[in-house]
């Protein structure tokens, strides 16, 4: 993420929601839609293959890039292979 220059004056009252991505790897066909759509780029390709011989997405979170629970991946996935559950804020 680029450094933020301007800041909302009441930013501290808002919290960025956090989500936890769940991947059903056996259903994935490696179409790469979730990787394309993810706004925070928290997904990456697996090094392994699944049952059908496709690489599937795995979660790769860092301090800056974490799942914000936008559920784009859940909406766009054609194979019902990925969904997001809301995570309680860590504080």
């Amino acid at each position: 993420m680029p450094p933020v220059k301007r800041k909302l004056f009441n930013l501290d009252q808002y919290q960025v929601p956090r989500g936890k991505v769940q991947i059903i790897s056996e259903r994935c066909k490696g179409c790469s839609l979730c990787l394309e759509y993810c706004p925070n780029k928290v997904l990456a390709w697996s090094t392994d293959y699944n049952f059908k011989g496709y690489r599937y997405p795995v979660l790769e979170e860092t301090e800056e890039r974490y799942c914000i629970s936008c559920r784009f991946c859940e909406e766009v996935c054609p194979d019902f292979a990925i969904y997001v559950i809301d995570k309680k804020e860590r504080g």
Binding site: E26, R27, K29, G30, C31, S32, L33, K52, Y54, P78, D79, F80, A81
Partner: peptide, 9 residues
Amino acid sequence: IPHIWCPGC
């Protein structure tokens, strides 16, 4: 499921 549709469909 998984359905028969191609990846990217």
